[in-house]
């Protein structure tokens, strides 16, 4: 099992939902963001290219951040996730420099300011200590929501398919631009997307072999015939017990 993500550049509409979902999921201090959006806006030969690259740690298969870490705080898990053991992290910041994607942040004391700097902590911030403490003086980055995966797998949940075991950003994306799954499984959604839509990696030339892939394409050119489940609305009802009940109410009253 090797977890990976595919990001559809033709769908992402720069809404920042993933950034916010990640901040909530990990109780992030105000000035920390594990997901960032890079706005690419260029005109070339009269064609205006407006693209948003949502970037997070690529969970590189050849990760320079692991190589430089003197304490093995940064390490690779069996499932490919590059994780940080903050108890081992000595704050040397070699990894911050080594990551060619600038995906690591050093949590210095001044970054742990309150959401409202001249005011008391909000209840949510107070809960951080209990639910997801951040250690000043260590380095942080996206961990593919490893906690969700670790909690979900023993329950038989499938990351990428079952929400409880899927990264928060993937769940919240209104555009469904993010797909998560097992790169080792040729039948997983991610593997299929990578092959069928000729995925690329950010700066493949760095030789880091990222586990985050990007696909692109045009909008349109599709058939407009609705599949049967869309017609009956069963594609809604399937995952929605609430709607089933609502429909019952509606049909009762007819």
């Amino acid at each position: 099992m090797k977890w990976g993500m595919v990001i559809d550049l033709a769908k992402c509409m720069r809404c920042h939902g993933c950034v916010a979902a990640c901040r909530i999921e990990h109780f992030l201090p105000f000035s920390i963001a594990w997901v960032k959006l890079i706005a690419y806006e260029v005109e070339d030969k009269n064609v205006v290219d407006v693209t948003t690259y949502a970037v997070r740690c690529n969970q590189c298969k050849e990760a320079p951040c692991i190589d430089v870490c003197p304490t093995e705080a940064t390490h690779r898990r069996d499932d490919g996730i590059v994780d940080i053991n903050s108890d081992l992290c000595i704050g040397c910041r070699y990894c911050v420099i080594a990551c060619p994607y600038q995906n690591r942040t050093f949590l210095s004391k001044d970054k742990l300011v309150n959401y409202f700097p001249n005011h008391a902590k909000t209840r949510f911030e107070k809960m951080r200590e209990k639910k997801y403490p951040h250690q000043i003086g260590t380095t942080e980055k996206c961990n593919f929501c490893a906690e969700r995966i670790d909690e979900g797998l023993p329950k038989g949940l499938k990351p990428g398919q079952d929400r409880a075991a899927t990264p928060a950003c993937v769940n919240t994306c209104q555009a469904r631009a993010l797909t998560f799954g097992d790169l080792d499984d040729p039948n997983s959604e991610v593997s299929k997307l990578i092959v069928e839509r000729k995925a690329t990696q950010l700066h493949a030339d760095y030789g880091t072999d990222p586990s985050v892939y990007y696909v692109d394409g045009k909008i349109g050119g599709k058939s407009n015939i609705a599949p049967e489940d869309a017609r009956t609305g069963s594609h809604i009802k399937e995952f929605s017990s609430v709607e089933k009940r609502a429909k019952e109410i509606f049909s009762q009253s007819k």
Partner: peptide
């Protein structure tokens, strides 16, 4: 806070 998958917005939410 997260989206409720049992709705017409399928568990998605914006910032």
């Amino acid at each position: 806070i997260e989206g409720n998958p049992d709705t017409l917005t399928r568990g998605t939410m914006c910032s």
